[in-house]
Design a protein around this nucleic acid. Structure first.
Lengths: 179, 179
DNA sequence: GATTTTCCGGACCATGAGTCCGAATGACTT
DNA sequence: AAGTCATTCGGACTCATGGTCCGGAAAATC
């Protein structure tokens, strides 16, 4: 069932448009069965994503990988982020299946924010490469995602705290960009 | 029309559940008129969001604010991010109106990623405060959002580039956490 | 083989985005 | 002022899809 769902999502040119009915058919099963097993569309997607992360968790537990406790903390952080990156790349179809804000980052508004911030960063670090600056701008904007802000507020931070943390983040990024 | 839409979204306990019909009624206008004016639900939300950002753009243009060209680049970056933060806080209802991944950051999977990464960061910078580490972990995970990855790939970066940029980001964050 | 229980599946329902055409409004002409 | 034409409006309608539900099949038990 999970396998069939993964296959049909991977094959679809537009995973967000894949219906539960289509998945049920591909799995040679009734729609009711799908819903009984996963509760909802999101439940199914969650199950699929969790399955992928489980493999990652196993890798983390393995001693020999760069993720294992043997490496230096710094390397482990990088290795962990890399593992996540590859996992996400490999399962793009799955993550894109949640319609959500598809293309919101390509909207004029985000483009403007990014261009503006990148411009300011260029002023602050004239010698940094364009690609580095562009990435830094994205990395500074990403934590402003409303969902993350909600999480931070729910976790007990107040706007002042967030503002300070973000300023510090920016400072660290600029310091790095200046080499 | 925009004003009415903003009001009804702001008043709703769950903005994502506000229907176009409800907005039309609040604006004392037919549904057809709404759609003719904005094309779609997303179009309307875009228009609302753009309206807010326009105010920000004006502030940026003003000479006297910390955003103006008079400040140091570093201050301007911080001021810009802060302005965005407050803008987003003030318009939370509007941003949350795009149903999307509501609560995805509260899912066990994200919680695990965050906890794991925060743990690694703690190892790398034992003296940093918990709040700082938590924020850093969020800030490192946020750029892994699939939408951003897609944008980066579309912009010509390949996975290797992203990996390098992300590693550099992590390095900069850790360096900062260690003071 | 009869009876009970569990599980399955596809017909069915509810909802809400987006469409469309008839009606209303208003501008322009005589 | 009345008639005519163009433009815009609005709400009834369509359609797609997530989610429900019940009749019946399969399995377990005796």
């Amino acid at each position: 069932m999970l396998v069939a769902a993964d296959a049909v999502l991977a094959a679809a040119p537009f995973p967000a448009a894949v219906t539960m009915e289509a998945i049920a058919e591909a799995a040679a099963v009734g729609k009711g069965t799908l819903f009984r097993a996963f509760g909802s569309r999101d439940g199914l997607l969650d199950a699929l994503w969790t399955r992928q992360l489980d493999r990652l968790r196993d890798a983390l537990a393995a001693e020999d990988s760069p993720l294992g406790a043997s490496g230096s903390p710094r390397r482990r952080v990088a290795a962990f982020l890399d593992a996540l990156l590859w996992c996400k790349l490999d399962n793009r179809h799955l993550l894109r299946a949640r319609e959500a804000a598809a293309g919101l980052l390509a909207s004029p508004n985000y483009l403007w924010m990014h261009a503006t911030l990148a411009g300011l960063l260029r002023d602050a670090a004239p010698k940094a490469s364009q690609m580095t600056i562009d990435y830094a701008a994205h990395a500074l904007l990403a934590p402003l995602h409303i969902d993350l802000i909600d999480v931070l507020l729910a976790a007990g931070m107040n706007p002042q705290d967030i503002s300070r943390a973000q300023t510090r983040h920016a400072k660290a990024m600029i310091a790095d960009l200046r080499d």
